[in-house]
């Protein structure tokens, strides 16, 4: 019998068994009335179930669209291709949208990857840091700064998604999927996500407003955000865009630095 494995070798072998690569580690498992591989299989199943359950929780709209059976097959393949790399399961599954795009079975479901992106962004939005919105004094001081050097720090929960599909309409339909599904040729949608109270809020934006907020989120100056938005729509009006951000408490600082805390 070969020498007993060191801990690292044993754990690598155990992981190989759990991931279905090799059962060689079974030689070191005491069967005690069962096949050693049957005992390893218990762990293989619990690991698979835990990770699939985590994906189901993070991707409720994808699950609603494709159904449990398809989802679980996809989850199984995903976790073998993109294993969990963190002890915190909230980080597991971030690459699912790209994985779906490459899945042959999902080729006819072009919208599915964007729905996955929206599910994931909702999770990020829910878990983002807290921050206090700016007060009136701060806003008044900002008004005195020239727009070409004024920059805006948005709330950490703000996220943006641009889709060529009606992704938000589809996501909302998934919450109570009855009646005809939304038409996939219903046009592009641009979505703003943020946290309102404790809940994740979402809103559709027109393309120019989306572009403006995207530039602001990228910490570009107010003047360049406005310029970029008017390239999309030459009638874009900056004022209601900023007013809405302020009203929702999504501006947490003004700065005239290129990067600021």
């Amino acid at each position: 019998m070969p020498a007993a494995p060191r801990l690292h070798e044993l754990q690598q072998g155990f992981a190989d068994a759990v991931l279905g690569r090799s059962d060689a580690v079974a030689a070191w498992v005491d069967g005690a009335g069962l096949e050693p591989t049957a005992r390893l299989r218990i762990y293989r199943n619990t690991v698979a179930n835990t990770l699939t359950a985590a994906l189901r929780e993070s991707y409720p709209a994808v699950l609603a669209l494709v159904g449990g059976d398809f989802f679980d097959v996809m989850a199984e393949r995903y976790r073998l291709e993109h294993p969990s790399t963190c002890g915190n399961l909230q980080h597991f599954g971030g690459a699912l949208a790209g994985f779906i795009e490459a899945m042959p079975e999902a080729q006819s479901l072009g919208y599915l990857a964007d729905v996955a992106r929206l599910d994931w962004l909702r999770q990020l939005t829910a878990l983002s840091a807290d921050a206090e919105p700016v007060d009136a004094v701060c806003s008044a001081a900002a008004a005195a700064v020239a727009p070409d050097s004024l920059r805006i720090v948005l709330h950490p929960s703000v996220h943006l998604l641009r889709s060529t599909y009606p992704v938000l309409t589809l996501w909302q339909w998934c919450q109570a999927p009855s009646g005809p599904a939304p038409r996939m040729d219903g046009g592009a949608e641009q979505v703003l996500l943020w946290r309102a109270g404790g809940d994740v809020a979402m809103a559709l934006l027109d393309p120019a407003t989306f572009r403006c907020i995207e530039m602001l989120a990228d910490r570009r100056s107010v003047a360049s955000a406005w310029a970029a938005a008017t390239e999309v729509d030459d009638e874009f009006d900056l004022e209601p865009c900023l007013r809405d951000l302020l009203a929702q408490g999504l501006i947490v600082a003004f700065t005239n630095e290129e990067s600021s805390t």
């Binding site: 007993a4 992981a15 762990y43 985590a54 969990s84 002890g87 597991f92």
Partner: peptide, 19 residues
């Protein structure tokens, strides 16, 4: 629960060895 950068996200048993 982790080896080689892969997390199995489970409470896996250790061998009761001195090591």
């Amino acid at each position: 629960g982790e080896i080689g950068g892969v997390h199995l996200n489970d409470l896996l048993p250790l061998p009761c060895t001195q090591e």
